[in-house]
Design a binder for these strands. Sequence first.
DNA 1: CGACAAATTGATGGATCTCAAGAAGGGTGG
DNA 2: CCACCCTTCTTGAGATCCATCAATTTGTCG
Lengths: 245, 245
Amino acid sequence: MGQALSEAVDSQCAHCPAHHLAFCAKCTPIELADFENLKYYRRFEPGEVIFWLGEPMGFVATIVSGIATVNQTLPDGRRQMVGLMMPSDFIGDPRRDKAPYDAISATETTLCCIPRRAFQEAMEKSPRVIGQLFEMKRNELDAMQEWMLLLGRKTAREKVASLLLLLVRRQLCTGSRERRGPISVAIELSREEMGDYLGLTTETICRQLSSLRQDGVIASNGVRNLSINSIDRLCAEACEAPESA
Amino acid sequence: MGQALSEAVDSQCAHCPAHHLAFCAKCTPIELADFENLKYYRRFEPGEVIFWLGEPMGFVATIVSGIATVNQTLPDGRRQMVGLMMPSDFIGDPRRDKAPYDAISATETTLCCIPRRAFQEAMEKSPRVIGQLFEMKRNELDAMQEWMLLLGRKTAREKVASLLLLLVRRQLCTGSRERRGPISVAIELSREEMGDYLGLTTETICRQLSSLRQDGVIASNGVRNLSINSIDRLCAEACEAPESA
DNA sequence: CGACAAATTGATGGATCTCAAGAAGGGTGG
DNA sequence: CCACCCTTCTTGAGATCCATCAATTTGTCG
């Protein structure tokens, strides 16, 4: 309950699981200490809204743990996910005072928040932060290009396989688990969220999952946990190049 | 035919139609002179390839005039446009030695090219260039989010209307023409390119254009030139907010 | 004018959405 | 701990939208 000593607080960023990939990855110790003083943690429940479209955006944030989604909607309610943010990803736009989209916590999520104006000033003084943010935006843009190819040209089955592949790869990166044999994947998105990611309805998601199950590509360990029988097979179904390593 | 004096060359950037929105918009005169010395113009014919996917990328470039498209393809040839680049837009990735996509000239296009390695060095020394590129990437990302909403959730008719609206708006920005009455729009993309932008086939593009024509939303002045009878009507068809100004 | 590419229109089939009902899972209170 | 409820997931039947295949027309460039 008592506030930690500044040395202890300072060490937190270095121990942060998101630090080495986040905007602050290349900061000097001094810059890091500045952010230390500005930052505060916030926790969101599944389904909780982080930003509403058009709402004043008081802070920007790095995801420390959990998953958040960024969504665009049409006036009649049709919704498309346009960002799937994972730990170390950056949410919010330092130069904009109103959120240009909805951001929603998909799982239980912890954010490392920094007041927007303060962040903007700090950012503009630090080429390391700008450089890292630029690099991160570049990666995001690359991912979006593949995502657009998926949305525009892939079939429902290919879309579902692609999303599963994304989730598997993420888990392989994080958990560094054995490649041989069936791989168990925790699906941290609801069927509806999967549909919003892929531009499909929940019913189509279900049907394609059932079909992949019937064809032996995946197996089911409960509704939010699947096993992948063959990654290479899944790659083929997703119309993507097989795993390299 | 003779090479211009360095003063005259130096003045070219300042007179460049793309300058005020391009990466070099905020450069100091000295920085600008550096780029002056590095740059060379290159002209591409309609349909000519600027970069192939995977090809060594020797230069980065700003579009001076014309339109270029950036495309992703699946192994079986299905193609999705993921970038529609207009004058002042930036093509290529300074930090990457191989092109991560195909870039194709859609019209007759003039590029202001700069050798990639030299650009990378210049960029990393100049916060003004990084800042402007960051800003441009941010805008590109915003546009891509709306594009993804279109790809994932809009109907064919809405997609076609949205693309027409994009082209109209672009022309209104550039040409600053009267808002009242029918607006004539030059369509600088083939039906196939429109299909690649929208994730549709050329046949569907044709049918939707015919349908919009029959319903009086647009009229035809030849195959590559349409008039928009009502911008507000077109906005409604595109499922977008009406023109504000 | 003639040849070729691009655009248009028609007919058909298939993929995905919509509407609807039932099953499974998760949480709450008795 | 079990029964109940409510949400989420799953499956089915039918309708709709868009892709495919094919034929014709229009436009462009020698």
